[in-house]
């Protein structure tokens, strides 16, 4: 890792009211890679993403973006450097893909100039990159789940920020649509060199599409590294309380997670 990390969390503590969710967490996001945060429900992975995205202030510690402390940057400056897609975003009824992509230009526009030829070009490029340019005039509510998610990603691309945070981008999508979104994520890394951080639930999907896995449990970081090194039956047992087989898939040799059968339950179809 030669490039300096664009996004770094130092001794971050955060929570809701009296409940502490993140406790003294330090994380360095590698530049130009896809980093995926995994962990059991309630481990604080979405809270970590919200703190990284400046959607939630840490109660102590701080996050730096390109070397500057997040709390010292103006919101619009943050939005020019880092694009964030929250979980399950909902667009107003009737909004088209083109209008949504155009919104991504907002952080670059002064209030008196809301549109320029350059903005139009960048929004078009963003839609082309995510494969929704043909759908520019179609309302979002008429799209499939995968297309809609790609339209939202087009909006974040139009922000032209080199850090991209995606909170559970594949939730509620079937496997084919989830793969469609994750293929796009990897392509963005390769073609634009963006630093991408995602939160995913599906462990095999996380292993397949990430360069760097970050495993969390009870608000702390318990392991990080390349998927093949991190994803072990021992780790899954300790953090997820999951008995699982982890083996390389026959074609790409990427780690694949399959839950182990409970000994008391018979294998279907076998007497």
């Amino acid at each position: 890792m030669s490039e300096p990390s664009p996004l770094h969390a130092a001794h971050v503590r955060a929570g809701y009211g009296a409940r502490t969710v993140l406790d003294d967490l330090t994380l360095t996001v590698p530049a130009g890679r896809v980093t995926t945060i995994i962990g059991p429900n309630g481990c604080g992975k979405s809270t970590l993403l919200r703190v990284l995205a400046r959607l939630m202030p840490p109660s102590s510690g701080h996050v730096t973006l390109h070397g500057d402390r997040l709390d010292a940057l103006r919101p619009r400056e943050v939005a020019r450097r880092m694009a964030v897609l929250p979980q399950n975003p909902v667009a107003p009824e009737g909004m088209t893909v083109g209008e949504l992509a155009a919104r991504g230009r907002q952080p670059h526009q002064p209030w008196y100039r809301r549109w320029s030829g350059e903005d139009a070009q960048i929004a078009r490029d963003a839609m082309r990159a995510t494969g929704v340019l043909d759908l520019a005039d179609v309302p979002l509510d008429e799209l499939s789940g995968g297309q809609r998610q790609r339209a939202w990603i087009a909006m974040t691309l139009a922000q032209q920020a080199d850090v991209l945070l995606l909170d559970e981008p594949t939730t509620h999508l079937d496997l084919a649509h989830a793969v469609e979104v994750m293929d796009l994520v990897v392509r963005l890394r390769d073609e634009t060199g963006r630093t991408i951080v995602t939160v995913l639930h599906d462990l095999s999907l996380a292993a397949r599409y990430s360069d760097h896995l970050v495993v969390m449990k009870d608000g702390a970081l318990v392991a990080e590294g390349a998927p093949a090194d991190v994803l072990t039956p021992e780790l899954l047992g300790a953090t997820f309380q999951l008995r699982a087989h982890v083996f390389p898939d026959p074609v790409d040799r990427l780690p694949t997670v399959v839950p182990a059968r409970s000994p008391t339950i018979p294998v279907p179809g076998q007497p």
Binding site: A53, R54, L55, R74, P75, R76, E77, V78, A79, R80, A83, V84, L85, P86, Q87, P89, V90, A91, P92, M95, L100, R103, G104, Q106, P107, T156, Q159
Partner: peptide, 12 residues
């Protein structure tokens, strides 16, 4: 209009 969680991500 894009929601209270999306707006801050756009600098609002």
């Amino acid at each position: 209009r894009l929601g209270r969680s999306v707006a801050p991500a756009l600098g609002t």
